[in-house]
Amino acid sequence: MRLTLRVWRQAGPRDAGALKQYEIPDVSPDMSFLEMLDVLNERLERQGDRPIAFDHDCREGICGSCSMTIDGRPHGPQQGTTTCQLHMRRYRDGDTITIEPFRATAFPVVRDLVVDRTALDRIIQAGGFVGVATGNAPDANAIPIAKPDADRAMDAAQCIGCGACVAACPNASAMLFAGAKVTHLGLLPQGQPERYRRVLAMVERMDMEGFGGCTNFGECHEACPKEISLATIARLNADFLKASLTRRDS
C-alpha cells in the first residue's frame, strides 16, 4: 500500500525542527511500524539524505525504547501496544500518518524522533535501593504475600519506563510512571523498609525534572502500552501524604 508520512525532522537539540513529508509507495501490511521506517531510511540513505533517527532496541514490546507519537497517540493508535508491535495492517492504502517525538520539557529532543528520557532514570535513581538479604537463594514462599497484592504489584511492575504516559498527559506529568514504581515496590514486603523514604525522594526528583502535575484526565493510562492502572497514582498520592505526615528525618 501507498502511505504518506509527515515526520518531525530536527538535526540537533538546538536546531529548529519541522514536519517533512515522505511518500512510501510499497508498504507491506506485514511490516511493523519500525520496519516501515527502516525501509524509508534505506531509501533516504541511498539518496544521500540523512535517515530519520528513532529509538528502538528489543522490537518485541518490552524495552520501552521506541518512543514516538503517531497521529497524536504515543505508540500509535493500538491499545496496549508499543510502536514496534504496531503493524502496518492497521493502516489503509492512501493513509497519511504524522509522526512526532514525545513532547515534554523534561524530554528534550536529541534528533528527529529521539528524545532524552534519562529524567525517568533519575527518578528511579532517587528511589534508591531495596534492602534484600543476599547469599543463598531464599526458599520460595518463605515470605507470605497475599495473592491480590502480588497481582497488583506485578501489574505495576509491567511498566517499561517508555515515557508514553508523559507524552500523552496534557500536563506532561510523570505520575503514572512514578506511581507504577512506587506501587510495585510498596505492595511487597521486600519494599517496606524504604517505602516512605522512597516515595518522598522520587516525587522530589520528579518535580525537579520539570514534569507537570496530575489532573486526573486519564490520558496516560489510555496511552500506556502496559495499561498501568490509574490506581497506582492514587497509591502514589496516599503514600506521599502518609510519608509527608509521618517523616522523621532531621
Binding site: R6, W8, L19, T69, D71, G72, R73, P77, T98, E100, R103, A104, T105, A106, V109, P170, N171, A172, S173, G210, F211, G212, F217, G218, E219, H221, E222, A223
Partner: peptide, 13 residues
C-alpha cells in the same frame, strides 16, 4: 512542562 506542543493530538480519555 510542555512548551513545544504537538502538531497532532488525539485525546481519548
Amino acid at each position: 512542562a510542555r512548551i513545544d506542543g504537538y502538531a497532532e493530538s488525539d485525546p481519548r480519555a
